[in-house]
Computed example of a mutant assay.
Amino acid sequence: MSVLFIKINNFMCNNSFFSFMNEQKELLLQNGQFKTAVSYSCTLNSFFNFRRGKDLGIEEVTSELIQSYQSWLKQRGVVANTSSFYMRVLRAVYNKAVKKNLTVQQRPFEEVYTGIDKTQKRALTIEALRLLRNLDLSHKKKLAYARDLFMFSFYTRGMAFVDMAHLCKENIKEGTITYHRKKTGQKLVIGLESCMAEIIERYSSFTKDSDYVLPILHSDNPRNIQVQYYNALRYQNIQLKKIEKLLDIPHLHLTTYVPRHAWASIARENGVSLSVISEGMGHTSEKTTRIYLASLSQVVMDEANHKVLSSI
């Protein structure tokens, strides 16, 4: 099981903050709140490293300590939004401890940043996407796999990583990929292009005994599936950061969300209408568009996707 879900035991001090946070994480897992549990685990690991493994009592979580943690994060190049994310998680845990009367409220998070900065989203240019696709990773199998998942997402009109992970072989029939978005439940149908089929075939030996198309998940146990998914998502983003360094393109920022944004941007650059892009990506927030437009035909969808893929 991944380090994200490692249990932290044998704390020496009384009223241990680490123990309490770990208990809260375990409760989240038991309640099926896997995404929040991952957030707790990531934050706990970071704070644990800041403390160099030295435990502390809940009452020792002071304003001075939290400000010192914020400075420590900044010195290590952690961006403001990530630092703020850790602070908000720690604050939530601390407030739970206060409610349980494990400590008195000292408001230790008032002097640190807990907001959310707006970040400029940079889609990949066609040139950068070509460099990524053609990058020689023949001796770096893990990075090649991460690149294949990235490109598969782009090829499939920005299929979300969660939908790629849960994509089953039964979803592919008669030259089409048909699936329902996990986020919205909306049904999407994508024409199976050769570039998609090549990636699927490349990993077919890894999935021959599995129902899944891609070797991201390996279990039918609901809890294990969730744990595997969030570990795979985190690992994918780590590998993409390594690819960033190899490409050495200024301002390049690769994450699992970027293929979706890139497909939309390149589609727009190639003259695909906003309504087609919205329909093709399964957006449900384009309410005004949907009032005036009926569902677009599969032929239009496939033509739009073929046009985007041909541009690279």
Rank of each mutant, 00 (worst) to 15 (best):
A128M: 06
L90T: 00
L131N: 11
R234T: 04
L192Q: 02
L65S: 00
C195D: 09
I200Q: 06
P215D: 02
D248L: 03
H166D: 09
L254Q: 00
G282Q: 04
R88I: 10
C13I: 07
N95Y: 09
E127A: 15
N221I: 12
T82N: 04
F11W: 10
A160V: 08
V93R: 00
Y86E: 02
V227Y: 06
Q298T: 14
N95D: 09
K241Q: 10
N270I: 11
M159Y: 05
K208C: 12
K74M: 10
S219K: 10
A294F: 12
W263F: 13
A304M: 08
S297N: 08
L293A: 12
K121S: 04
L247F: 07
I200E: 06
N171A: 01
R51V: 05
K208L: 11
H306S: 15
G191C: 05
N9R: 15
P250I: 08
C195S: 15
M164N: 02
Y230S: 07
T255K: 08
N270W: 06
V104H: 08
T43E: 03
F48N: 06
E198N: 12
K183G: 01
F17T: 03
Y235E: 11
Y94W: 06
V104R: 10
I291Y: 05
A165M: 02
T255G: 05
K242L: 15
H251V: 09
G271A: 11
T289S: 14
G271P: 03
L246W: 01
F48S: 09
M281R: 06
G77K: 01
G280A: 01
I58C: 03
V276W: 00
K208Q: 10
L309A: 11
G185E: 09
T119K: 14
Y212C: 05
K25N: 10
K121D: 02
D136M: 01
Y155S: 00
G115Q: 01
K183P: 01
I225Q: 09
N14C: 12
E201N: 14
K7M: 14
P222R: 08
L131W: 04
C13L: 08
V276F: 01
S46F: 08
Y69I: 05
C42Q: 13
